[in-house]
Design a protein around this nucleic acid. Structure first.
Lengths: 188, 188
DNA sequence: GTACACATGTAACCGGTTACATGATTGC
DNA sequence: GCAATCATGTAACCGGTTACATGTGTAC
């Protein structure tokens, strides 16, 4: 049961495999050409990670020889992989995650559409917003402290962080609306 | 001459040592209590990094025994360290850095006030803004592509990225003004 | 005598980066 | 024969994380 903490890269790969089975080369192409560009498209990152997922029983490979090129190792998610993936999808955003692994909440959101109900997605986003606001309050205290005696550049750097989190809060509002109106479209 | 690419943590430590000489324990306190919280305050991160800076000749330690406790190793920057640090401060933001190491441009800005003239800082921020806008154009193309056939959550995730970069552009505008008006205050 | 604050270290592990090596086929 | 494209792999290195271990003095 004790799953050993998947990395963002592992989770992103599971998300891709969930979308459709694919090879390391396919993944490389996606990382190189889409907005997932902050993942490295180097083979040294991708192939060992796929192997690792396989060793842990979260993905499995089949050899594709239908094309007349070098055979491709096509990976797909196992049911164990799906379970671990969905368990991760259901994690609410924590303060810890927000500060230390800030891109994870968005990664999770981007991949959860297939498994979570609109209600669950909305609850997730509301939780995210709660943590964002709480952290913004902390940052605001820092700002008040710096206002008195901090250097201009330090104050501005902090302000950048604050503006970024504020933009995320605004995005969450947008996303909640978008999810709600997509849901009401479906019902009509 | 070929300096071997300093990490963000190493650069942040150099920035702190430039502010004032300090021990690993001081650094830990700062990382734990200020907005630099996304750096780990664990001793396993800080002490080896300080040693590394010392080994590379970028910092040097003196033992402080004036207090009646365990002696403190107080590090300060060497002139070689200062040179490497300032060379880094003068790097303009590149597209590569923006995508792969997005927090570095802000770290650099927050630490450059002492060594760069207001004119240089403004030029740096303008370069940053140029890269941000260029990258936003790329992201906008991705968005148009997704608009036709992408899943709602993927479109929204991309929108989050766009909103974040837009917020940074707005912050750069603010920062340019703040730097300019601080400069004109000084001249009066 | 023990809890706490101050202060430094390191060993084991692990994942990501870089760079290199290779296999298979098509088209010139 | 060689370049290009598709496709997979891995060895060496390195920095960060976690967890543990230890030293020194003060206050209760």
């Amino acid at each position: 049961m004790a799953q050993p903490e998947l990395t963002n890269l592992e989770l992103a790969l599971l998300g891709l495999l969930d979308y459709r089975p694919m090879s390391g080369y396919d993944v490389q192409g996606i990382f190189a050409t889409t907005a997932l560009a902050h993942f490295s498209s180097s083979p040294g990152a991708i192939y060992p990670t796929l192997k690792r997922l396989e060793k842990r029983g979260l993905a499995e490979a089949t050899l594709d020889r239908t094309r007349e090129t070098r055979p491709r190792r096509v990976y797909s998610m196992t049911t164990a992989g799906q379970e671990a993936f969905v368990a991760w999808l259901r994690q609410p955003v924590t303060r810890e995650e927000l500060v230390r692994n800030g891109s994870a909440p968005i990664l999770r959101f981007s991949l959860c559409g297939k498994y979570l109900t609109p209600g669950e997605v909305t609850a997730y986003l509301e939780g995210y917003r709660r943590e964002l606001r709480a952290y913004l309050n902390e940052l605001d205290e820092h700002r008040r402290a710096l206002e008195q005696q901090g250097a201009l550049h330090h104050r501005l750097a902090l302000l950048h962080g604050i503006r970024g989190y504020e933009a995320t809060v605004a995005w969450v509002d947008e996303a909640i609306h978008a999810v709600a109106s997509a849901e009401s479209d479906v019902r009509t």
